[in-house]
Amino acid sequence: MSSRQASLPSLNIDNVAVMRGNRMVLPGLSVTARAGDIIWIRGANGCGKSTLLRLVAGLLTVTSGNIHSEGRMALADENLALDANVTVEAALRFWADMDGASADARDAALTAMDLQDLAHIPVRFLSTGQRKRASIARVLASGADIWLMDEPYNGLDSASCTRLDQAIINRAAAGGIVLVAAHQPPSINVALSLSLDSQDAAA
């Protein structure tokens, strides 16, 4: 743990552009995030929100520019990545083991997303919103420094939205960085609200 906490998480996106299917996405985007920052990325469908998160996560490579990040990352995107035939608890435990997360962190994540009552139900029986909560719980349990969340509010009821708000605020307050890609305006105080439509950032 000491080595993880020794350096603060940071994220530096420098003049990034990427080609997606013969189309230039994110032409010349630059963003800097320090520990404690929440960055809210907005934009129309297809403007490159998910692409940006996948670039930061290292799943795609940039065509030009640089991305430098410091700290462990966790990603919650449209793919659930939880085995459908096992219980919610077992599916989350698999990833918690991958992340080296403790049983306490796992239980705390289940509680934070109000999944205790669903813990022993197979993942395939979950509703859309419950699936989303399970994938958010995986990010919470991971203890990662940088959270990448792609449309995390989709399908959530208002109580769950409030829980997610609180989880994001807590993570940032504890020195993490949270990137949220969403089509709605931020519901919480953010360090940077970035609109990919016009390519200009307003603090």
Partner: peptide, 12 residues
């Protein structure tokens, strides 16, 4: 690939 497990491993 479809469920995103491979992506999650790559992120880690």
């Amino acid at each position: 690939r479809q469920s995103g497990v491979l992506d999650q491993l790559a992120v880690r």
